[in-house]
């Protein structure tokens, strides 16, 4: 731990920049969906922002269910089987 060198993500400024770019790309991807028409298989794929909203909602549900439903049910001490 004697290494006091500042690395790329030790600087808060870099993280903020990264997050800005990241959210910028998200907004761009969401908007472009309204402009570029593309058709695939399922009818709902034509809805603008379908994939974006599905991805966001799916992952929030995934995390909430894992944390508040699954973990309380299955979590045990590390040496449970020993």
């Amino acid at each position: 731990m004697s290494n006091h060198k500042k690395y790329l993500w030790d600087k808060k400024k870099n993280i903020v920049t990264l997050l800005r770019y990241f959210f910028g790309i998200c907004v761009f991807l969401f908007i472009i969906d309204f402009i570029v028409p593309y058709k695939t298989h399922m009818p709902w794929e034509k809805w603008p922002g379908f994939y974006a909203i599905y991805g966001l909602v799916a992952c929030v549900i995934l995390v909430l269910v894992s944390k508040y439903v699954l973990r309380p049910l299955v979590e045990r001490e590390e040496n449970y089987y020993d």
Partner: peptide, 9 residues
């Protein structure tokens, strides 16, 4: 979109 918005979550 799917991936970036999953990452956003």
């Amino acid at each position: 979109q799917l991936l970036f918005f999953s990452a956003m979550a």
